[in-house]
Write a protein that binds this DNA or RNA. Sequence first.
DNA 1: CGCCATTTGTCCGTATGTATA
DNA 2: TTATACATACGGACAAATGGC
Lengths: 249, 249
Amino acid sequence: MTTSPIATSRPRTVKLTEAVARLIVDDIVRRDLPAGAALPTEADMAVQYDVSRATVREALRILETNGLVLVRAGRYGGPQVGAADPVAFGRSLTWFLQLRRTHFWEVLEARVIVEPLMASLAAQRRSPSTREELTAAVDAHRALDPGDHAAYLAATQDFHGLIAGISGNGVLDLFGRALKEIYTERAIAEIRPADRHQEVLEEHERVVEAILAGDADLAERTMREHMQELAKGFERQYATLKDEVVGWW
Amino acid sequence: MTTSPIATSRPRTVKLTEAVARLIVDDIVRRDLPAGAALPTEADMAVQYDVSRATVREALRILETNGLVLVRAGRYGGPQVGAADPVAFGRSLTWFLQLRRTHFWEVLEARVIVEPLMASLAAQRRSPSTREELTAAVDAHRALDPGDHAAYLAATQDFHGLIAGISGNGVLDLFGRALKEIYTERAIAEIRPADRHQEVLEEHERVVEAILAGDADLAERTMREHMQELAKGFERQYATLKDEVVGWW
DNA sequence: CGCCATTTGTCCGTATGTATA
DNA sequence: TTATACATACGGACAAATGGC
């Protein structure tokens, strides 16, 4: 019928397009180019790799969806090195989740599970600069105008991102931040002030305290309690969204 | 210099290519097509969406890297619905890790952390069929010819994949399996028999026992011990690989 | 402000490679 | 083995966008 017998594994023949994509990444890594650095124009790449512009463009589309490059039209435009940031990774992750019919509650549950682990790791890995960063973040949070909802969101965002970074594990960092992006983009974007500002601040303070004390178990527990509170609030406000399949942004 | 001031945010103008990519996915989801189902040919899509074949091809490259479609040449070839499987996701993840200069030990550490969690979840979510699946997997492992290295690898692969599935969380499942793929592709592929077959089997048995007993804490602990043993063995054998940046396969 | 050079975005036509009945 | 139907890859052309002047 319409479904072919075997659909796994990749095609045997390697596509020129993908080879070019890898050459471009090799170039970025070898020259250690930072995000934002200019890459050759499509035309130049076509000459450099001795392929047509169409092939170069397909390679750039591959890299672009993965956040590795950024292509802008117009004069002084052209391909740039991308940030490969968690936002882009979250977007990529979302494609997979959508086709696998993953429900939104699974994203939330994954966060509830992963965030405490990163807090635990952060407590074990804290460095001299850690104290300043964390206290600065909490202080900024504490000093906020209680009515400024946007600032409140930004502060909580920073908090979780900061701990992810301190965890010292790039894989979990990337994953945790991507989950946060998917969650916030879909949920928080529409949320009405939860009147939990004060409680959230206190919970954050307890987590920071545990991390700075180097108490990994306590950091993990307090962060888990915090995430469970967050999940409960979500379930109250988004009973319908919970069982929806993850889509795009 | 060559680095432009701002490189964040996406380009303002929406590319036709991306719009077509979304339309194709919409079509897959709306018609609820399973992996392997045939999609229209490039030429048909060009007519259907009223764009050029070049645009369709770029859209297909986007979807192909994300495992959403699979394109094969030749007669009775053409675009198919992809599996969006952990292997494809791992490949996508690897692009990001490479550009972020993530070290291989971070992948391993993430596994050591995530696998026990999935075991814990599995113990809480076990269903009637769980017992059969797990006991069957362990029985198959136990019955292996001790010298059959390939079979041993397949058995351990199955074991971790099975638990990931039982965990009931699609996000962690996808993530855990992808990490496993990156790890095994790079490490196990070259490994020499570790003479740990018997011990590994016993460790697996202990984990299964805990899951079937519904003891989440015990499942988590035993799995963590198992993963830490695995990590130790890795560090002995791959002292150099450990600090390498993750690349492709 | 509008002009203008540069680069991508999009299209078409054609030739070649590839997989299957 | 051959014929067929498909993707793969090429080259050239024009439209649109961008940013400095």
